[in-house]
Simulated scan of single mutants.
Amino acid sequence: MSRKFFEAKKRHHYVWAKYLSRWGNGTKDVFYTTKTGKIAHDSVRAIAAEDFFYKTTTLTNRNVGIIKALSEKSPHHLHTQHMSYLEDILKIQSLEDMYRASGIQDHEAETLIHATKCNLMENLHSSHEMKVLSILEALTYERLDILNDKQHMIEFMMFFGHQITRTKTFRDAVFHAQLRRNSLEIEFADTIVHAWWFISYMFGMNIGWSLYSSRNEDSHSLLLNDTGLPFITSDHPVVNVHSCVSETDLIAPKYADLYYPISPRIAYIVCNSKRFVTGINRVDEAVVDELNTKITKQAMVHIIGNTEGALLNYKKHLGQRYNKMNPFL
């Protein structure tokens, strides 16, 4: 067996490092805000990451029951996919259980078990990233026609959905929203926390499929920014920028204008408000400033830009929505 099977990936990025490097001016170094509110210039490897963020946990029968109940609310074909992934994970868990029950202590087995827990979801997210490399590259060069291909659109929307649900910002907001008024709610909330590595992946699949399914009703637009003010991104790179979004409560908004900056010059937005027309839209500085402000407010710690100046005017907005929803921070 290859040595790579035994190498546990410790540092998990919840925002794709290669994506963030689009703000690196040809390098891997970007300008970003730190936990102390300063602006640093360093490698993308240092940001939007946490050790063992996607590490899998052992699922109890009750955990599995709650996961299945959540999945059953999905369209049938997605529920089938969720359960297929879950079955594979439970098979791996069963193998570990048999190994533990044997009483045998084997260094190679322990190393492989640890690596599998660390790498399984990280590798799954990486597989989605690899599928959209050429798509993001084409969009950077204004080739929106690449999404006329059905498979490309499916892959991009699945990736897009996970860019919402895989972040630490989204995770903490969901954890904070869980009710714990009785034993059933506590059990449900504990499962959400314990199995978030899997539940968040299901949610991302569902959002991605919903966006794909509604593609003919929503506006899918490429925003071109040729102003002197570049787009910035953050540790939560897809945000709803519609004015109906509450800055204090985690409630479902009436409209979803899901905005995703791709580079300092290019962004993608899916609008069910019809704010932008389907196709290519050129934006002025006022719109860029609005979008940068909204992505900053919905970030947790990091906003990322291609220059220090691109971040200076937005630092004061950093994390405003996140902090209002999490008053104990």
Rank of each mutant, 00 (worst) to 15 (best):
L139Y: 08
S200N: 10
H176I: 07
F5D: 14
Y201K: 06
I192N: 01
R321H: 14
Y322I: 08
K4G: 06
S273Y: 06
R180D: 06
K28H: 14
V64N: 08
Y32G: 00
H12T: 13
S43T: 13
E129A: 10
T167G: 03
E87Y: 08
P327E: 09
S84C: 10
I47Q: 00
T34Q: 07
S94L: 10
Y54V: 03
E108F: 13
H302F: 12
E187I: 08
M205R: 07
H76Y: 14
A173W: 05
S214H: 14
L70M: 13
L70W: 02
N306W: 04
D42Q: 08
N323M: 13
N61C: 04
H76P: 09
Y99N: 07
V245H: 09
M202Q: 14
Q163T: 14
E110H: 08
E122T: 07
W23D: 02
M205Q: 12
L90W: 01
M130Q: 15
K91Y: 11
V30W: 00
R100K: 15
D190I: 00
M158F: 13
F175T: 07
A173H: 01
A46I: 02
Y32A: 08
F52N: 13
D88V: 11
E187V: 06
T167E: 01
G309M: 09
F188L: 12
I207E: 05
I39P: 03
Q81A: 09
E285S: 14
K55N: 11
Y54P: 00
H41D: 08
S134I: 07
S263M: 07
T111D: 11
G24F: 05
E122L: 05
V132N: 06
T33N: 02
L312D: 12
H12G: 07
L250M: 12
T80F: 13
T233P: 04
P237A: 06
F160W: 07
R321I: 12
N313I: 05
R22S: 11
K150E: 15
L184Y: 10
E96D: 13
N281S: 07
V15Q: 01
S210L: 12
M121L: 13
Y14C: 01
H128I: 09
H152T: 11
K35F: 09
W209Q: 14
L136R: 12
H242A: 09
G24P: 02
A109E: 01
K91N: 13
L20K: 02
